[in-house]
């Protein structure tokens, strides 16, 4: 019985292996490469929104941008009247699309939209679609400060039937804007809004370097949220420390110019030089004394 089980297992494995190889051979022969067409919605500082369209394909286990691909971006329906913009993708495979003013009425009237991108078929890729469903939303940052704690209060609201209502259970990142990235304000990586669309996070980064006046920028943002997309807001706060600019460059030091020699070095060097050369001059005076004695004889 055990032998039979082993045999049937081996047969099944062989069949699966052969089948996989056959399917693999078929697919490599005729199919075009797979294209990823991503559409992301961005709203910086509750201001002018834009859509970022990215085209990618896998080459040698890496995703790289696809260039020279004709892509059309539509609002709600892929029809000519809803065409926002067509473009030829560049080497990076990324294109930032701003909504034209001709769509203002449509944009103002509705709360939710769908952005649809369509990449036209070519020799390498089939026609590919990508879309992003977006609900209009906004983020507001506020702060309060007591003697011991500093809090960042973030409110997220979304538009529903023409009214701004709290957006609950929205995952947010709250951070300080730094030169090369964002630094979380506390131990938490993300924060989630409550039923009032609000979240309060304690600021735990003491002695953080700010600008010349000690200010730095707080950032609250959603990242690839299903309905809100990527929206973020910033606020300048005076919670940092002003950098102390090193002005010692012009001080007296060992690495300064000759006119800025340290006083202790001047004192030591001149003391030694005066001591030694004073003695030499004294010796020369002794020589003159000897000479004088010799001439008097």
């Amino acid at each position: 019985m055990k032998l039979l089980k082993n045999k049937s297992g081996s047969i099944l494995f062989t069949l699966l292996l052969v089948g996989t190889v056959c399917v693999g051979q078929d697919s490599t022969g005729t199919e075009k490469k797979a294209l990823q067409l991503n559409v992301s919605y961005y709203l910086p500082q509750n201001n002018i929104p834009y859509v970022l369209v990215t085209t990618k394909t896998k080459v040698d286990r890496k995703f790289i941008g696809v260039k020279d691909l004709k892509v059309s971006v539509y609002l709600n329906d892929p029809t000519d009247s809803n065409l926002i913009q067509s473009f030829q993708s560049n080497a990076t495979g990324e294109e930032r699309i701003y909504i034209p003013t001709s769509f203002k009425e449509v944009w103002d009237a509705a709360s939710s939209f769908t952005f649809i991108a369509v990449a036209a078929a070519n020799k390498e890729f089939d026609e590919t679609k990508g879309e992003a469903q977006v609900t209009k939303a906004k983020i507001e940052i506020d702060t309060n400060r007591t003697d011991e704690t500093k809090n960042v209060i973030v409110n997220v609201k979304q538009l529903q039937k023409g009214e701004w209502v709290p957006a609950k259970d929205v995952e947010l990142k709250i951070a300080v804007k730094r030169s090369l990235g964002n630094l979380p304000i506390g131990d938490e990586e993300t924060y989630t809004t409550d039923s009032t669309g609000s979240v309060t996070a304690e600021f735990k980064r003491d002695s953080l370097l700010g600008d010349n006046k000690g200010n730095f920028i707080l950032v609250a943002r959603t990242e690839d949220h299903e309905t809100l997309g990527n929206i973020f807001a910033e606020k300048n706060v005076p919670w940092g420390t002003a950098p102390k600019i090193d002005k010692s460059f012009n001080n007296r030091s060992l690495w300064a110019t000759s006119s800025k020699t340290p006083v202790w070095l001047l004192f030591m060097a001149y003391s030694i030089v005066i001591g030694v050369w004073g003695t030499i001059f004294y010796l020369v005076s002794l020589l003159f004394k000897i000479k004088k004695l010799g001439k008097t004889l």
Binding site: L286, I290, L293, G294, L297
Partner: peptide
């Protein structure tokens, strides 16, 4: 060294 006479005073200073 023509001025050197080798006197005691000179020798002392030297």
């Amino acid at each position: 060294g023509s001025y050197w006479k080798g006197t005691e005073a000179q020798e002392k200073i030297r």
